[in-house]
């Protein structure tokens, strides 16, 4: 449900980024979303589309790049993709593992013409 609030942040960032370029048409906004954020891409997409309706950036596409969870074992140093949220090293079975990717919630870039 907070996807709408996140979409709003994205739209505000886009508006700020193009405020000195009134003629720019926003084609696409790229965002990076990690699996651990529990964000539903469809809901984010829907929120974004609803918010830009009847605004100067109407028609812009939201491109969502999803990032799987990657972790590194603090014991043996093995790096692995976390599947089904099992934060357990497949090499040494330690549960002392650190997240290295999968927590992202970032705007990458904005494509304009």
């Amino acid at each position: 449900m907070h996807e709408l609030a996140l979409a709003e942040s994205i739209v505000n960032t886009v508006k700020k980024a193009i405020k000195d370029r009134p003629d720019a048409k926003v084609l696409q906004v790229r965002v990076r979303i990690g699996e651990l954020t529990d964000i539903v891409p469809d809901s984010l997409q829907f929120g974004f589309e609803s918010l830009i309706m009847d605004t100067p950036i109407e028609g812009a596409k939201l491109e969502i790049e999803q990032v799987p969870i990657n972790a590194k074992c603090a014991g043996c140093g093995h790096e692995f993709i976390v599947e089904e949220y099992m934060f357990i090293c497949p090499e040494c079975f330690s549960s002392n593992v650190n997240l290295i990717r999968g927590d992202e919630l970032e705007i990458i870039d904005i494509e304009i013409e």
Partner: peptide
């Protein structure tokens, strides 16, 4: 011609 504005910023950077 399209152009890309790099942002590389957290969505919740204000928060």
């Amino acid at each position: 011609m399209s152009e890309k504005i790099p942002v590389e910023q957290k969505v919740l950077s204000e928060n």
